[in-house]
Design a protein around this nucleic acid. Structure first.
Lengths: 317, 317
DNA sequence: ACCTCCTATGAGTAATTGCCCATGAGCAAA
DNA sequence: TTTGCTCATGGGCAATTACTCATAGGAGGT
């Protein structure tokens, strides 16, 4: 995953080829001859530009069906905002589409003139969204992570997105210098009382807008896959009615945070208050249906970015 | 030009198809079967989405701005090619950046398989560019100098670049065995009628590509600094509207060669014909703004390598 | 100095896309 | 109803693009 930097000019070339191809609309043959390389090399540069996410495509048209679904959802659940993107029935990706839409929404918030605090959770979907962000300069804003950046084995949590975000967005950013899960409620108390952590928690509580992924439970869910919970712990949770999690905070089918030993060990900041702050959940996909519904009805989130299929499910239940 | 709005659903479909194509990365065949239409219709929807600018493509890389500027310049002045490099506001160098870019361009030409004639002018910028060239073997090409290699005091002209070029590039090279300035139009006639000079002039007129610097006038400009003109001659020229020179050929603010005693004494080859040959000007910097602009509008050159700041100036005037 | 491994490159080929044309449906005017 | 026009459609085909494979060049290790 680490990017090769041994040929720094190569990305420049890729950018140039990608620009000529996508923006200027030249063919790869023309690009090849203007850049003095072979057609195949031109093709490689173009796909490199795509692979490196130098090329950002966005669709600038409200699709009527999506808008309508969004409106209905917003009314039904009293949400602050809902964004629906088209479903792609042929893809099993849990990020495609909503990542771009979330990136656009993040960008809109960051382009506001007045200083804001933007909080981010964690997860693959959010990571994919942040990867879509363009370079932005917004020194007036603050970006804070709700979740710790250390995994159980002591390494940096890959899906902690604030570092990726810092690469793209020039703003003050505040990681949470904590593990994701600690060993006991007491340890959490102790860590949270440290000055550095306290001030980060304080900032997060003042968040104007928060972007969070919504994780489903299950042995294939992120908490297990990323090694935060053992299989038997997961089974125990699910027996107790848990259906989803946001930033590690586990909730049941009504979206109520569970009162159990796991939640006592979650070191994440509390989700910013939904009455004073916009908390946008980003998630789609059948496996997440129950978790998303619970997060909404339990008001763990008050805004949503999802896809058509998920929206239709939410309207039927 | 007015778009039909009688089928409002059509743009939605276009948006959906465009989304599936560009964001979800599906093929048009897949889109067609998903949407229940023929492949051709899917293709039409996708191109409609592009034509209606529903699809916004953005390149997130520093050189994107340069490419965009270059494109605008190329269109505005009908240039064959334009290359813009990032400006370095902290540097007052008139060569940094464009020298490397020019070297890359020279290299691209020299790597062409078919034999070409490459002509070079003179000047510090071009010298810096040639110094960036790697060792190349291209015995099939010919490299010719447009300008003489003897200064008024009889020594070799330091900024005559063909000798530096010969060090790096193994090709047949043709210096111009003349002074830069002669004493009269008659002397020029006589010298140009020599067999050796005539054949060199003949080669230069067949140049496929020409690289020239653009000199500004003024008592700090190259013509004065290098001792080709006296201060009072320079003042006289500037009173007559001269703003710049290429290979010693002095032109006014409209890029028209001046009809005066100095130009009659310039022994350089004529600039190769711009309708049949690519003549690339290499220059940047505030002091050269007027000269560059004149060279372009007067079509002394038909291609340009410069930096962002200069490009922005050229777009505003 | 030699060897090995890795990566970039170019050719060939399959897949995909863009374009032109003939056709026919829809619609307005006669 | 007929006529004439426009425009979407789908087939066919040429152009363009993506992928696979074998090879060459170069860095790094022995």
């Amino acid at each position: 995953m680490a990017k090769r930097t041994d040929t720094p000019g190569r990305l420049d070339d890729a950018a140039r080829a990608g620009w000529l191809y996508y923006v200027a609309g030249r063919t790869q043959d023309e690009i090849a001859s203007t850049m003095g390389i072979s057609r195949q090399s031109a093709q490689r540069l173009v796909s490199l530009a795509v692979a490196e996410k130098l090329i950002k495509v966005r669709l600038d048209h409200p699709i009527a069906a999506c808008l309508e679904l969004g409106n209905q959802l917003r009314k039904k659940f009293d949400l602050r905002s809902v964004e629906i993107v088209p479903s792609d029935p042929g893809s099993s990706s849990t990020t495609i589409g909503i990542a771009e839409a979330a990136a656009a929404e993040i960008e809109r918030w960051l382009k506001r003139p007045e200083p804001i605090v933007l909080a981010v959770g964690t997860g693959r979907t959010l990571k994919a969204a942040v990867d879509q962000l363009p370079q932005l300069e917004c020194p007036e804003h603050r970006i804070v992570s709700l979740t710790g950046n250390i995994t159980p084995d002591g390494s940096a949590a890959y899906y902690n997105v604030i570092f990726s975000m810092a690469d793209a967005v020039k703003a003050r950013h505040f990681p949470m210098p904590l593990p994701v899960l600690v060993t006991s409620a007491e340890e959490r108390e102790m860590l949270h009382s440290q000055q550095l952590v306290r001030s980060t928690l304080e900032i997060s509580s003042q968040s104007d807008v928060t972007f969070v992924g919504i994780g489903e439970l299950g042995i294939d869910g992120p908490l297990c896959v990323d090694g935060f919970l053992e299989k038997d712990e997961m089974m125990e949770l699910m027996r107790n009615g848990a259906v989803g999690e946001i930033c590690g905070w586990i909730f049941d089918g009504d979206g109520k945070l569970l009162d159990n030993p796991i939640n006592e060990r979650v070191a994440s900041a509390p989700i910013p208050p939904r009455d004073s702050s916009t908390v946008i959940g980003i998630a789609k996909g059948k496996r997440k249906f129950k978790a998303i519904r619970a997060a909404i009805v339990g008001r763990q989130i008050n805004a949503l970015i999802t896809d058509e299929a998920t929206a239709e499910f939410l309207l039927t239940v």
